[in-house]
């Protein structure tokens, strides 16, 4: 590729019907760039989990995706309430999602663990009352 490419998406916090739009778009964009199917799958699933988290907890946010020679970097930033205990949040099955979200099939406490599982590198920066930024990288 030689140079890096950047994509920016806004994640609407309004409702769940539009959740996933950014992930589906990045899937298409990466496919056009000729990225291999497994990398696309990992990136888009990690991003979808992040999108859903931003819809559930933070009333939306911003997603930036950077593609370079080494891999795909995803930066998800929101101005939500922040994560009180990031270590606890990373445990499979731990969730603070409300019941209405669970009835849709979300809120199983698998979002952050899945993001870690599908990426090579993941960093959570969160300040209570200010917001959360998650940076993930999938290497080629």
């Amino acid at each position: 590729m030689g140079e890096s490419l950047a994509f920016h998406y806004e994640v609407d916090g309004g409702d769940f019907t539009s959740a996933g739009q950014a992930s589906v778009k990045i899937k298409k964009n990466l496919r056009q760039l000729g990225v291999d199917a497994e990398t696309i799958r990992r990136v888009s699933i990690a991003m979808y989990e992040g999108e859903i988290n931003m819809v559930i907890h933070a009333n939306g946010g911003n997603a930036d995706v950077i593609v370079d020679d080494t891999g795909v970097t995803i930066i998800l930033a929101d101005k939500g309430p922040g994560i009180a205990d990031t270590e606890k949040a990373m445990e499979e099955g731990y969730s603070t999602a409300p019941d209405n979200v669970r009835s849709l099939g979300f809120g199983a406490g698998m979002g952050l663990p899945n993001m870690k599982r599908y990426t090579d590198d993941m960093k959570i920066e969160s300040v209570l009352g200010e917001g959360t930024t998650i940076t993930m990288k999938v290497n080629f």
Binding site: A19, K27, I45
Partner: peptide, 30 residues
């Protein structure tokens, strides 16, 4: 549970569920 499906289902699997809300389309696609 959609995150379980995304985390465990393999490419090409038939996904059997009783969930029928709009989010199943995104999960199936991803």
């Amino acid at each position: 549970l959609l995150s379980w499906v995304m985390g465990r289902a393999r490419e090409g699997n038939a996904w059997v569920t009783i969930m029928s809300n709009i989010n199943i389309a995104a999960v199936a696609s991803l």
